[in-house]
Design a protein around this nucleic acid. Structure first.
Lengths: 334, 334
DNA sequence: CAAAGATAGACAAGCGCTTGCATACAGCGT
DNA sequence: ACGCTGTATGCAAGCGCTTGTCTATCTTTG
């Protein structure tokens, strides 16, 4: 590997001059012939700057950490793709890990994007003063950090309102293992509040299921829900996430219940799965990927010392309609 | 951030000694009291070694590049999760990118894992002599590099044999945009060969479809296939990948064709999608994640100078039976 | 008791790059 | 002819860590 010194020797100048020319850092004037000589030498030697040495000298690594707790969630693909592309565009590399220790002080990153599981508040990290941008649905205001957030509460409300608008009155919910959470995730709260706000609508919620496989958990939960007496007259169900929705769909198909003709399904968390399912799932989409890209941009601004304040951005949650929800067929009674 | 020099001053020794103590590199003897003094000082100062400086001095970055062309494939999640965990365990960080330029010489990685799209041979990279481990279904032998591979040909054969074993004789294939590939991907070759080998079995293949959405492509292709006269008597279909299979399932459901009662579906490439589908899809699983982890291990061996030869590992392709294939219902004729 | 080990640690040269400052030589005005 | 202002470059001190070598003190041992 050619070094600055090699080029300097070949072009008969000092390494300092080479550095300045190659980085276009010409606060000080350099003669045209010299510039060309240096450029040529660099070319001939196939010079590639040593990122390490540069980082050590400048204090900027041009690497950004990306933390995501579970590398198995379909959601993460979209995030990763979007963030990686943007980072590359801006001249940064991405170090991804599902372990915060990988980003402890001393590890060479300029900053960290911390994507919190949507129902858990993020940890505070000992990053040694390096900036962190949080992507999370639950971070109290007033933090001295960049935060991109959205409302899971609103998301649940959106789902329920959509269902209610279609005429559904008895709506099931598949909450996974939320039972033991305290406080209850805001999406549960939103679900309940929206139900209360809608005249005559009631919910029947299914909690807790031990199976570690999320799809299977959704499947089992859906079956349990179907078996409950309160489930009579239930025409729609809200699933906590995409895996749960897929599981629910399996149970529904198996029971011969047509979706959406006999049962509407809506879920939280838009992903490839939602599109690939049959029927394609109507979902409330949290702007996870967009939020992450935004966080990246804020982070870069801060790293490059252009940002001053800490504006916390709140993104809207949206409903994407596909084919799994339909108007309630016909009133069973009256 | 505390540096070695800070510790050295506080413990009243030289930085060299501090370095040796903190790294347990005691080829040379160091007295117990000194060791303790240094350890204490490091503790009190909350010392974290600067990874950059260390890398520059040692020539080892403890970072490994992970190249994957498309960060949107569900497959990649399993790979990433497995590789990241193992890398972390071995003390390496992962730099992931879908652009090989990110790993050009000079960028600070010790080596690269190149995961090639399963039907394309990998590029050769200008890494400046750093080791590359390839994960690919198609790399000629004899490369001076670590290669983990498997046979797509065998995979297709496995699928067809399974189907034929269940009594299927007329088998559809959804090949996506393979039409223009030359040479034809080996899985197409395997499919045809297995068909020829089975008495009385014939295939009806569907090629080419422009839609960029892979699921939709599978959907459209399945519909076209169903509409073809040759498709009469077809009782099973082989999909090129998980997305295509999901799309096919949509078309089948829509047409009221029961899977697997009236039509068996099998596909190449096991992923979360396969498990989440209804019915859960029987698939031939290429050992992508395992291969990647193996590649990582070989790479690390080479980086750490323990590997000599270049054993190219070939992993078996396996059939994982789920619920989308059934014995052919009853002979239509005879 | 002197010479030959051990033992314990300091010293300093890098790794490859950046950057503030000093220097050298033009040409200019007076 | 002299200092000046530019212009064009060299010099060298880092960035924080590793590591080969050298020195100094203390034990051994013939």
């Amino acid at each position: 590997m050619a070094t600055l010194a090699d080029i300097a020797k070949r072009a008969e100048v000092s390494t300092g001059t080479v550095s300045r020319v190659l980085n276009n850092k010409m606060h000080m004037p350099i003669s045209q012939p010299t510039i060309e000589r240096i450029r040529r030498a660099a070319d001939e030697l196939g010079y590639r700057p040593n990122a390490l040495a540069r980082a050590l000298a400048t204090g900027k690594t041009h690497s950004i950490g990306l933390y995501y707790r579970s590398l198995t969630e379909a959601m993460f693909l979209r995030i990763l793709e979007a963030v990686e592309a943007k980072a590359r565009l801006r001249g940064y590399r991405l170090i991804v890990s599902s372990d915060t220790d990988s980003f402890a002080a001393g590890s060479s990153i300029d900053g960290l994007i911390y994507i919190a599981p949507s129902d858990e508040p993020p940890d505070r990290l000992p990053l040694g003063g390096k900036p962190v941008a949080y992507v999370t649905a639950s971070l109290e205001d007033g933090t001295r950090a960049d935060v991109v957030t959205w409302s899971e509460y609103d998301g649940a409300v959106l789902a329920v309102e959509h269902l209610v608008g279609l005429g559904h009155r008895r709506i099931g919910a598949l909450w996974g293992a939320y039972a033991d959470r305290d406080p209850l995730p805001t999406r549960v709260l939103g679900f309940r509040a929206a139900l209360r706000a809608a005249a005559g609508a009631t919910g029947v919620e299914e909690f807790g299921e031990e199976d570690p496989d999320q799809v299977r958990r959704g499947y089992l939960q859906m079956r349990r829900l179907l078996a409950r007496p309160e489930a009579a007259g239930m025409t729609a169900v809200f699933a906590r996430n995409d895996y749960a929705a897929m599981g629910a769909l399996q149970a529904l198909h198996e029971a011969g219940i047509k979706v959406p003709a006999a049962m509407s399904v809506i879920h939280y968390g838009d992903s490839v799965l939602s599109r690939a399912a049959y029927p394609p799932l109507t979902s409330v989409s949290h702007p996870n990927a967009e939020a992450s890209v935004l966080a990246l941009e804020q982070l870069i601004e801060r790293i490059e010392d252009r940002a001053e304040s800490f504006p916390s951005v709140r993104l809207p949650v949206t409903l994407v309609e596909r084919a799994s929800c339909a108007p309630v067929p016909r009133p069973k009674e009256a």
